[in-house]
Design a protein around this nucleic acid. Structure first.
Length: 305
DNA sequence: GGCCAGGTGGCCA
DNA sequence: TGGCCACATGGC
């Protein structure tokens, strides 16, 4: 009975050739402190807000590697708008619309990427489709170790986000810009954010809550350089965060956080070098990645964690 | 206890 | 533009 109800509501999403669900699962499993989705028995559970409702999705891999979205929990949407929002979210989250063939062709000829793409074949640039979440995650991660960044994010989400209970598990959704816009600095410094980070997060929440900044408006700009310029003009967003958000949220293939210390370390290890590469050396290496800088970065990061 | 972390803003030439 | 430097906080 229950099984039948699930099947009626399930949606199949076809996947491209170079897609590997297990790679996505491995990537998504990299931190025990991750709180914005839950993985159990190769199924991903993710709370999504559509039309003022929090809907719990279950994403799994079925025959031919295709993805299946089922809606679980109390609210099972029959609404087309909600269903298409879920499909769009998953397509963006797993970057299913990119043809990776030319990236792999390029990587085959590249000393740094050759081994890496073999090891992570089928890995997609797993994204953060929500702009506010992507910006916050970038800012939270500035200049601190990733393990601590996850802890800060968890505290932030569990303090100011919403949640539902299902199957003995709490499922969280990222705090809304409206909620964060009204916070005081001390609300965030109590979580052990620095004062400056607290200012950045609240400031950006206010820009989004008032409609001054939106994903749609950024995507409406003519090219990615303009988006970068717009983002960098916002307090708390420098070149690193702008490119990080371009690559994780706006699916910009040429986004390249060149100053990233993780990228430097990944290249150092890949080259078996004693020292981190200089910016000029990275630029030299990246000159062969034209059009695929974001994917190259994402795959190199993957070698670290 | 010192150095490092998926940096940024501000100041100075 | 490009180069310093203060900033804060946990991890190792």
């Amino acid at each position: 009975m229950l099984e039948q109800q699930k099947l009626e509501q399930a949606i199949t999403i076809p996947v491209p050739t170079e897609f590997c669900f297990d790679q996505a699962i491995d990537y998504l499993s990299r931190s025990a402190d991750e709180c914005l989705y839950h993985i159990d028995n190769k199924k991903i559970y993710k709370l999504l807000n559509v039309k003022e409702k929090n809907i719990l999705m279950e994403i799994s891999s079925i025959e031919r590697g295709n993805l299946l979205i089922s809606f679980v929990s109390n609210e099972i949407p029959s609404d087309d708008v909600i269903q298409s929002a879920a499909v769009n979210y998953v397509r963006e989250w797993f970057d299913l619309d990119t043809d990776l063939a030319s990236f792999y062709a390029l990587a085959k000829q590249d000393q740094l990427l050759e081994q890496v793409v073999q090891r992570f074949y089928g890995l997609r640039n797993i994204g953060i489709p929500d702009l506010f979440e992507a910006l916050c995650w970038g800012i939270i991660g500035q200049q601190i170790q990733l393990s601590f960044a996850y802890k800060l994010k968890r505290r932030f989400v569990e303090t100011f986000g919403e949640s539902i209970q299902w199957n003995n598990q709490t499922h969280w959704i990222f705090p809304s810009p409206q909620k964060v816009a009204e916070l005081a600095i001390t609300d965030l410094t109590e979580l052990q954010m620095t004062k400056r980070k607290a200012e950045y997060l609240i400031g950006i929440a206010q820009l989004i809550a008032t409609g001054t900044l939106s994903k749609q408006s950024l995507l409406g700009l003519k090219d990615d350089k303009l988006v970068e310029k717009k983002l960098v003009s916002i307090r708390g967003i420098g070149p690193w965060t702008a490119n990080y958000v371009l690559m994780r949220c706006l699916q910009a293939k040429t986004a390249f956080p060149i100053d990233d210390v993780g990228l430097q370390n990944a290249i150092k290890h890949a080259l078996g070098s004693e020292e981190k590469p200089t910016k000029a050396e990275i630029q030299q290496l990246a000159s062969k990645w034209t059009g695929w800088e974001a994917y190259a970065t994402f795959y190199l990061w993957r070698t670290l964690y």
